[in-house]
Amino acid sequence: MFSRLIITTSIVLKITLLSTFISLLSGCDEQQEISKWPLDKQANLSELVKPAPISYSKELRFYGLVKGFNSIPISFLEAGRIESLLVTEGQVIKSGQTIGELYSPSLADKLSQAVAALEKVKVKLKVDLEELARNIKLFNKGVVSEQVLEQAKKAFDITTQEVREAQSIVKTKEKELSALTLVLNEDGIVSKLHKRKGDFLNVGEPLLRFDSTSRMKVSFNVPENVAIDLSLGEENNIFLPALNKVITAVLIEKSFPTTNEQFLHSLTYEISSGAYQAIGLRATLVVNIEPTLAHSIDYKAIRYDAKGNAYAIKSDQSFEKVAIDIIDIKNETAIVKANFNSNDHIVLGGDVSLPVNYYEF
Score class of each variant (00 low, 15 high):
80 G>I: 00
184 L>P: 00
101 E>Y: 12
259 T>P: 02
79 A>R: 09
103 Y>S: 11
197 K>I: 12
35 S>T: 00
273 S>D: 15
135 N>S: 12
145 S>V: 02
336 V>Q: 08
199 D>K: 00
149 L>W: 02
67 K>T: 05
249 A>S: 07
88 T>W: 04
197 K>C: 08
78 E>Y: 07
312 A>S: 13
203 V>A: 05
164 R>N: 10
64 G>F: 03
161 Q>H: 10
33 E>R: 06
48 L>G: 04
300 K>P: 05
243 L>S: 05
141 K>R: 15
67 K>W: 10
14 K>G: 15
317 Q>L: 12
222 V>Q: 04
98 T>S: 12
108 A>G: 07
124 K>I: 08
132 L>I: 04
264 L>C: 03
83 E>H: 10
302 I>C: 03
180 L>N: 07
77 L>P: 08
36 K>G: 00
120 K>Q: 14
101 E>I: 08
272 S>H: 13
299 Y>N: 13
164 R>L: 10
280 G>A: 04
138 L>D: 12
275 A>F: 10
155 A>P: 01
300 K>V: 11
64 G>C: 06
267 L>T: 04
41 K>C: 00
89 E>Y: 03
10 S>M: 15
76 F>E: 05
221 N>G: 10
305 D>F: 07
125 L>C: 09
207 L>T: 05
332 E>H: 06
31 Q>S: 15
125 L>I: 09
316 D>N: 15
245 K>V: 09
50 K>E: 15
225 N>T: 10
229 D>M: 10
267 L>V: 06
283 A>M: 01
47 E>G: 06
118 L>R: 14
323 A>K: 11
5 L>W: 10
312 A>I: 03
102 L>A: 01
276 Y>M: 10
94 K>A: 13
293 L>A: 14
27 G>R: 13
15 I>N: 05
334 A>E: 01
57 S>P: 08
320 E>N: 07
27 G>D: 12
141 K>L: 15
194 H>G: 07
6 I>D: 10
346 I>W: 02
243 L>N: 07
360 E>A: 15
26 S>N: 11
99 I>C: 02
204 G>E: 05
9 T>C: 14
349 G>V: 02
192 K>M: 13
50 K>L: 10
327 I>M: 07
246 V>R: 08
166 A>I: 00
341 N>K: 10
294 A>R: 04
175 K>E: 15
228 I>W: 04
80 G>K: 03
206 P>S: 02
275 A>L: 06
196 R>W: 10
49 V>T: 12
112 S>D: 09
155 A>S: 14
147 Q>I: 12
102 L>N: 02
62 F>R: 01
50 K>W: 09
313 I>D: 00
237 N>P: 01
241 P>A: 08
259 T>R: 09
226 V>Q: 07
42 Q>K: 00
62 F>P: 01
308 G>A: 06
280 G>K: 06
219 S>E: 11
116 A>H: 08
185 N>C: 02
46 S>F: 00
71 S>A: 13
130 E>I: 12
92 V>C: 04
269 Y>M: 02
301 A>L: 04
239 F>G: 05
291 P>H: 09
